[in-house]
Structure formats: C-alpha cells, structure tokens
C-alpha cells in the first residue's frame, strides 16, 4: 500500500507524535515496507474463518463485584508531573 507524506503526518497527529517535516518522507518509506510485509497475509484465503481472539483455548476470566482495590491516591499520583489538592493538575483544557 503506497503511503504519502500527508497520511504519515495525519497518523502522527492522531498518535500525538511531533514529526518534523523533513522526516516524513523517510517514515513514509519505512511504514510502507512494514505494511507491505504484513500484507503478505492477504495471500491467504480467510473466507469463513472466524477471527482468532487467542492462541490458547481459554475463556475470558470474570471477577466478582467486590471492592478490592483503589484507596491508593499517593501511588496513583506519584508520577504526575503536577498535582494539587488530590487532583492531577494538567494544562487548562479549553472546550
């Protein structure tokens, strides 16, 4: 699948990664190669094959509705660049 600079720039924006204009071209070529490699899978006919959710045959584990966690604000906030009065403090989000 050919990938142009604009698409790479858009993907970077969606992922919140700042990519200098000069690097877009090189990234486009690299990503094209990666996608091309994955696209080999298209050669396999998967009609009527259900998607495989896991390589091991296990069911989704369930949990009882009991409070067993939380109440660890110091841990939760430990890595926050900024905090105040028990909140995370982030640059103003304007709507």
């Amino acid at each position: 699948m050919p990938l142009d600079k604009a698409t790479v720039a858009r993907i970077a924006t969606l992922a919140r990664i700042r990519v200098p204009e000069g690097e877009l071209e090189g990234l486009a070529a690299e990503m094209e190669k990666i996608i091309g490699w994955v696209e080999q899978l298209d050669e396999v006919n998967t009609d009527e094959v259900p998607p495989m959710a896991s390589v091991v045959d296990v069911d989704l584990p369930w949990r009882a509705d009991k409070v067993s966690d939380g109440d660890c604000r110091d841990k939760v906030l430990a890595n926050a660049p900024d905090k105040a009065e028990g909140f995370f403090a982030v640059p103003k989000v304007i709507e």
Binding site: R63, S68, G70, D71, R73, V76, G86, F87
Partner: peptide
Amino acid sequence: SGAATAFGAEPNTQVSLV
C-alpha cells in the same frame, strides 16, 4: 477493576492502578 464506584468520594481515592 476492583475500585469502588460510590458517588462523592474524595478525588482519586477510588482509583486502582488499572
């Protein structure tokens, strides 16, 4: 996660690492 859901708790006290 196993954190509580009650309304009106002190901020970030009903938060697990999940």
